[in-house]
Write a protein that binds this DNA or RNA. Structure first.
Lengths: 147, 147
DNA sequence: AGAAAGAATTGGAACAATTCTAATTAAATT
DNA sequence: AATTTAATTAGAATTGTTCCAATTCTTTCT
């Protein structure tokens, strides 16, 4: 599980002009850095508010556009809990999400090493899984929270 | 995996006046029967359209109210795929959902017998999982579809 | 049974997240 | 430098859902 803020600050000027086939504009760099920097699964609104600190003229539409572009180019993942506002996550490792019902914080959880989807699901022969989204909600013991 | 229409028709008049602590009104019976009858994971809109066939005066608000009541009393499960309209499912067995990307159809998938969440996820010690939602998207071989 | 209280239903308004639109600005290509 | 193409912007529109106040149904109480 991880909620670690990165020790290095990501700076827009260090982001290459293109990333994963996506042209990185000023706004996209900003949004991307901010996600990399504060990996707390913000909503589009959260991103908007944070982005405005450094780019006061950025619009919410642009934030949505940037997030969509980043998601489409698989630089960022979109995370949905029920029908709550989507959240965004720059962790590209395969993982799932756990929401602490007490704090609302979202944590990344990984699969056991070597585990395969057919090891735990009764999928019919030949089914090809293209996307998997697993979300958990529950209670974290406070001891674990600190880490 | 199942998408089986039940062989018996569920009739509102056969539903008891109370179910799982929920007073079953005329509308709730209708909504519940319709879900039990056609287990294809309809949206609230779908339910509304179907319900109107037998109850032309039912309102969309009532359908939402009924579905909410049924979900709260755990007679029905709410299923979310990304931010698409919620769908409703009367299958109370523990299961997850697979959407066929070709047809849009949603199928129920069960866990392997005896599998435990800690068998496939790297959850920190002491975390108590209260809710789990797993959704899959992919392609079903047409041979499998027929069944 | 009739009155009173409580709950559910209804239609429409309100809401919140997201998407769309048309105009402007910025970047890339010629 | 001119032209084409793409991205950004503000605001309007859309969509699924929830809220609201009025009415209708049930249930409970005399």
């Amino acid at each position: 599980m991880s909620e670690s803020a990165s020790p290095v600050k990501f700076r827009p000027e260090e982001i290459p002009a293109e990333l994963g086939g996506l042209r990185m504009t000023k706004q996209r760099k900003e949004v991307y850095c901010l996600l990399m920097d504060q990996r707390d699964h913000p909503t589009a609104q959260d991103v908007f508010i944070r982005a405005k600190e450094r780019m006061p003229n950025i619009s919410l539409a642009t934030v949505y556009n940037c997030l969509e572009a980043l998601v489409n180019h698989e630089l960022v993942r979109q995370v949905n809990f029920d029908r709550a506002p989507s959240r965004y996550c720059p962790n590209l490792e395969e993982h799932v999400h756990f929401q602490d019902l007490e704090t609302g914080a979202i944590h990344d959880v990984v699969f056991k090493k070597g585990i395969n989807i057919n090891d735990f699901l009764e999928l019919p022969e030949g089914v090809e899984v293209r996307e998997l989204e697993l979300t958990l909600k529950g209670i974290m013991p406070s001891s674990t929270k600190k880490n």
